[in-house]
Structures are given as structure tokens and as C-alpha cells.
Design a protein around this nucleic acid. Structure first.
Lengths: 220, 220
DNA sequence: GTTTTACCGCGACGTGTGTCGCGTTAAGAT
DNA sequence: ATCTTAACGCGACACACGTCGCGGTAAAAC
């Protein structure tokens, strides 16, 4: 007897059952994924319904439901496909400049119309699949940004050997306020925030906030 | 102090229409709002449907729809009602201690089960009403937390006259990483993050990151 | 070529969400 | 006390979402 009314037929099991990913299946997949972007751009997250995707792609509703389950699954698929691009952080010559540029990119991403980034974040609260896809995307970005910190250490802008510097912690400290103000606190964009947040992070880093050291122990 | 508070009109437009908020209407309102909390605690955001609220409160579905429109409107109402409590930040004796305590409260709020705070954030992405209610709630909290910074200036932990210190900027810098890691990046809770984020903010503040200095600029 | 069957198209169905019109109740005015 | 009508209760309705079973198509195996 089954424990419940579980329908785990085509869910993540992915056993070695025979599959047939060629020809038509691949065509359907690209048709659907190609329809997601424009729809998201044109109508935002609320307009990105399974029905709309099916209608635009020419694929039947049931097929989309079967293969992607919900909107979050669709976004996760396109996000993973977009993750392996060639993006890398700009090199302005200074840590503060690099972080400021990064923050301005973030701020711009929040500002663009239609708000694609915002829609992705919203989707991550409705679908676990979209959430983990966005998680992977951001972790990848922070990893790429570590080079910004490495360059700063090489220029001796920051103390400590490279291995002792918490690059990710520094990057999160620098960028988090921008996300926080816009996404959670819902304030109007502040043109000066990217610089201020970058500068604060740099000052903290120079004071050794992200350098694990066993020697330095200032008062209190 | 100009907080630029929006007008607290319940419903946009139709301001002069005669209203009848007494007796039964008030009773219905309290019945409904009393039902929201327990439902949110028991079933989370997904279980907080208009139907469930109506059934539990004994009020008809249509009435809830008419007065609150959607789940976000309900949450906005309870949030505004819960905003005027007597919460105030703890006084540990040092700025780093105060900020750490604050961050640990934030982290705990994200961790609690059921995730009420998380549910509120999720709701803010579905409903503009919930979003602005959460905005008001957080801004109020940050305003109350300004006393933490003021105490630090009084103790001369931070440079500059009180008026020149950007208390809110400091507080956002200290707390944003905790929200960011948990809510957007979706990482497991890091027990050491509250202290690290607080320490970084303090180091930046001591270096003058949040003190508007018109007389002397350190470098650059 | 033929066979097998994974995947798709199709339409019907059940369910949950939100709206509407109408009659009833009771809050506020006189 | 009586009147007016705001706000509620009620049930029906329209609609979007997601699922299911069936039959057809074409990928992969032979």
C-alpha cells in the first residue's frame, strides 16, 4: 500500500529509465524557454502564467505543466541556462571603485523596467526551485567577484595574506545594503548609496574586519 | 525630523463618504484580525487564505474580500496594529554589543518556526499593501534603533557630533548582511554572522564611514 | 524497413479564488 | 422612537489553475 497519494512519477527521481530528449522534445523545450523571457519582460511576473507561456510558445498547457510543474520551475530553467555567461566584475583600479561599480550594477538591475531581477526574487518566494536556482546564480556571482578582493590584496590595499581574507564576507557587506534598501525596505533608489556602502565596506576591511588574524588584538 | 509619513487613509478616494465604523463593523474587524495570527502560525503563509480566515473568524468570505481585498491587505492591517508596541533595542554597554544583539534578534526572527517574518516578507512581494506596511514597520524599527548609535556617540565610541552621524546608514550596514544571507541568498543560518556583521559596521563607523565630515576628508 | 514507447496534443474535469446582486441587519442621525 | 443606509450575510457566478485519461506522433531501438 502506498503511504499517500504521491504521484512521484516524473519528479526528481531521474532514474535510469529510458528517455527521449532528441528532436521534438528539444524543440519544445527551446520554444517554451524562448517564450519565457519576452513574457517576463512584457508583463512581469504576474503575467508569466503557464497558460501565457503555452500560448506564446505554441506548446500545449499540459505539456508545460508536465515538464516544468510551475512558473518557478520555468524560471529556474532559464536562470540556470543564463548562469554560464561570461560576466566578470569591472576593474577600476581601486577596491572602492570596483565595489562601487558592482553596487551600481546591482542598483541598476533593481531599477530597470520591466523589473526582471525583482520578478526573479519575487518568484523565489513562491517556488523552491526558483529559490535554489537564484541561490546558485548569486553564489556563482559572488565567487566571480572574489577577484576584486584578490586584486585589492595584491595592491596591498588590504592587510593580511590572501588566504586569511574573507572575500565573500567583504562582498556581502558591500552589496547587502543596496539590496536591503531596495528589495526589503522598499525605499526609493538613492544615487549615493552604492558609493557609501562600498566606502563603508572598504573602511571596515582596511581595519581588518575581514582578515582572520591571531596576532592583532586592539583594545576592547 | 521629516519622516514624510503617507496619509493613513484606509481606502483611497471617497474620503467624505459617511462611514459607520462602530459596533458590528469593529467586532467583525477584530474577529478577522484575531483569526489571522493563529492561522499564520499554524499553516504559514500558504495556509493563510481568505477562505480560511473567513471560516475561522465566522465572518463571510465576501465581507473579508470587500474590506481587505486580499491576504496582503490583511497582513498590512495586523502589521500596522502590531507596530505600536513597546519594543526598544537592548543596551549592552557597547555599540558592537548592541548591534550584535540586534542582529541576533533578526537572525532568530528568520529562524523561528513557523516562519512568520519570512511569511510577511513573502507576502510583501505579492501585495503592495503588505509591502508598504512592512516598509513602515521597518522604518519605525530603524528609527527606534537610532538610540543605539546615539549612545555610542555619547560614549565617544564614534567620532563627530551627533547631528553629523548617519545612524540609519550605520544600522542598515550592520543588519543588512544578516537579512541578505538568509532571505535573498538563502544560506543556512551562520551563528557567527551577527557578530561579524556588527563588528564590520563598528570598524567602518570608527573610521568615519557614517560621519559626514565637511572639514577634513581623510584621503582622496 | 518494423516495433516499441517516450513524449506530446487534446479536451474534460475538479478545485480554489475573487466578484456580483440582492435581501437583511444594525449603526448613526433626526 | 423612527428613518436612512452602511455594512454584512448569503448564494450564485465567472474565471484561472492544475490534473487526468485517452489517443496520436515520432524518437530511438531493432
Amino acid at each position: 500500500m502506498t503511504t499517500a497519494d504521491e504521484d512521484g512519477a516524473d519528479t526528481p527521481g531521474e532514474r535510469d529509465r529510458p528517455r527521449r530528449p532528441g528532436g521534438r522534445t528539444a524543440r519544445v523545450r527551446s520554444q517554451v524557454l524562448d517564450a519565457v523571457g519576452p513574457l517576463l519582460v512584457e508583463f512581469g511576473y504576474d503575467g508569466l502564467t503557464i497558460d501565457a507561456v503555452a500560448a506564446r510558445s505554441g506548446v500545449h498547457r499540459a505539456t508545460v505543466y508536465r515538464r516544468w510543474r510551475d512558473v518557478g520551475g520555468l524560471l529556474a530553467d532559464v536562470l540556470d541556462a543564463a548562469g554560464d555567461d561570461t560576466w566578470h566584475p569591472a576593474d577600476t583600479g581601486s577596491l572602492e571603485g570596483d565595489l562601487t561599480a558592482l553596487n551600481e550594477e546591482v542598483q541598476y538591475a533593481m531599477e530597470e523596467d520591466p523589473p526582471v531581477t525583482y520578478a526573479l526574487i519575487a518568484a523565489s518566494f513562491r517556488s523552491d526551485e526558483a529559490a535554489s536556482a537564484l541561490h546558485r546564480f548569486w553564489e556563482d556571482r559572488y565567487e566571480r567577484c572574489a577577484e576584486v578582493v584578490h586584486r585589492a590584496v595584491d595592491r596591498e590595499e588590504l592587510p593580511g595574506p590572501l588566504e586569511a581574507v574573507d572575500a565573500r564576507g567583504l562582498l556581502v557587506t558591500a552589496t547587502a545594503p543596496v539590496y536591503h534598501e531596495r528589495v526589503l525596505l522598499r525605499n526609493e533608489p538613492d544615487p549615493g548609496l552604492p558609493v557609501r556602502a562600498a566606502r563603508a565596506a572598504v573602511l571596515a576591511a582596511r581595519a581588518g574586519a575581514f582578515t582572520s588574524d591571531s596576532s592583532k588584538a586592539p583594545d576592547r
